[in-house]
Design a protein around this nucleic acid. Structure first.
Length: 271
DNA sequence: CCCCAGGCTTAAT
DNA sequence: ATTAAGCATGGG
């Protein structure tokens, strides 16, 4: 099936922007994304047309929201450029086409717990190992894949076993996240009703989830565009590109998007 | 072999 | 409130 996506949509930039770890570009130039048990193959066929492997219903209910097609990124970009700051203008152009994905909250929680103090290739390796060993198999027309393991899929796993999948010292963090979710102490659906700051505070009650990881989860799965994760790259950028001034506060509602453009311009663009 | 990575917890100041 | 060590492990 063919869908139209107007503009400011780049699959290449999305998978290299450090917000998702399982999206890939395949040999034939198409891209593959996995959301829970759903797999999407998507290929650009001309300026506005994309060939997608799903039906209309799944596109509208799952993938269009996943890619955040409703948000007006053109308007957000204009707002950034109006700031008059040449650095902001530059990264807005470099990042044009990135969307803030709306990913599964459990997967995002665990993925960003794993992400701490790792580089992106290492994060991908660890996550894929977990999926292959504990996720539900998914058979598509061309390949056998695995969903990201659900909390129950990890119910029996020991810290020692977790370390076989390269999570290192983060084993106890994953165990605590699993315990809180399975016991109902943390309801990942319910907390969506909280405003951003309160949401981040609740996420931080999980052992091993700090300010930065909580902001990533808020931004990349709860779609809080006002959340601004500050990792080593962004902190460095605040020092070097903004002379220590926190410009993000100027763009309250969409500061997280600016943050993502900057992260991509520092890390993703080199690929 | 060395340094760094989408950091956090804990202990010491 | 701020700072520092310690943490597992792979990538460059």
């Amino acid at each position: 099936m063919v869908v139209k996506i107007k503009d400011l949509f780049s699959l290449e930039k999305i998978i290299n922007s450090g917000q998702c770890f399982r999206g890939v570009r395949l040999e034939d130039g198409s891209f593959r994304f996995i959301y829970r048990e759903h797999v999407l193959y998507i290929k650009k066929i001309d300026e506005t047309d994309y060939d997608v492997s799903c039906d209309k219903e799944d596109w509208e209910n799952i993938w269009a929201p996943y890619f955040d097609l409703k948000t007006d990124y053109k308007a957000i970009s204009e707002e950034f450029k109006k700031s008059g700051n040449p650095f902001i203008k530059k990264v807005t152009e470099i990042g044009a086409g990135i969307r803030i994905l709306k990913q599964d909250s459990w997967e995002t929680l665990i993925s960003f717990i794993i992400s701490q103090n790792k580089n992106i290739p290492a994060i991908r390796t660890s996550i894929e190992l977990l999926c292959e060993n504990f996720g539900s198999p998914i058979q598509t027309k061309k390949e056998r894949l695995y969903a990201f393991p659900e909390p129950k899929d990890l119910e029996e796993i020991s810290p020692e076993k977790l370390r076989e999948f390269k999570v290192g010292y983060r084993d106890q963090y994953i165990i605590d996240a699993r315990e809180k979710v399975l016991s109902g102490k943390l309801d990942l659906n319910l907390i969506d009703s909280l405003e951003t700051r309160a949401l981040i505070e609740v996420l931080k009650t999980v052992y091993g989830v700090g300010e930065k990881v909580a902001n990533c989860i808020a931004l990349f799965s709860y779609h809080r565009l006002d959340a601004v994760p500050k990792d080593v790259w962004i902190k460095r950028s605040i020092k070097e590109d903004f002379k220590g001034i926190d410009y993000y506060s100027d763009f309250k509602e969409s500061a997280g998007v600016l943050q993502q453009y900057i992260f991509y311009s520092k890390v993703g663009e080199k690929k």
